[in-house]
Amino acid sequence: MGERPVELEILRYNPETDREPRFQRYSVGCREEWVVLDALNHIKETVDPTLSYRWSCHMAVCGSCGMMINGEPKLACKSFLRDYVGVIRVEPLAYFPIERDLVTVIDDFMDKLARVKPYLIPKREQPVSDGEYRQTPAELKKFKQYTLCINCMLCYAACPQYGLIPKYIGPAAIALAHRYNQDSRDGGRDQRQEEIAATEGVWDCSFVGACSEVCPEHVDPAGALQQVKIASTVDWYREHLMPWKKK
């Protein structure tokens, strides 16, 4: 296994001493098979213990190590050094405030996620003695891809509308709301529509499509958003043109 010199340019920000972020360059010997996260760990262990970043699983499951790598939202644990030439520029996820170095403030996303009620709201509560809420494979398939979301927020860092309109609920939260709306066991759509059919919900999306392009789990939030738009439009016409029909 070969080792080669790698240069990384990392955005640093120390809230106690820095007025604004600045880039710091590190040159370290890295193994051929390493990912960017390995390089960061190596720097922290051998060069600069003050470097701050989030990570946990190192296998694209936990969703903690999202960052901008050469301007593209990426999981650091899934980005191989060998795929980059020259200096690798590492920054915190775009559009989120910087807490320190590569650590961002994610309260906004957490708040929005909670608001869309991303959990099963059963159509009718049934006692445990009645057994499981059953579902066919076709019904499962309808929403399965959206369950793969790991809340890594790469889609937010890719979405210009989120950057321009901070109130916008954004891709992952709406895709997760859609995931439960599509679930045959769920009856919570009306509650979720209160949030996602509002102006700051799906209507701030202009279908740039970047969210789906950067998703490391191949979820398609952009698709979910368009489907929510179509369903909300059908709702609207039903409510306004056929008022005699009950919701």
């Binding site: 059919a197 509002a198 919900g201 738009k229 909300s232 439009t233 609207w236 016409y237």
Partner: peptide, 15 residues
């Protein structure tokens, strides 16, 4: 939050 009335304008845009 109130539901948006964007569906009217968006529906025609999509059509």
């Amino acid at each position: 939050m109130a539901k948006s009335s964007k569906p009217v304008v968006w529906g025609l845009f999509a059509a």
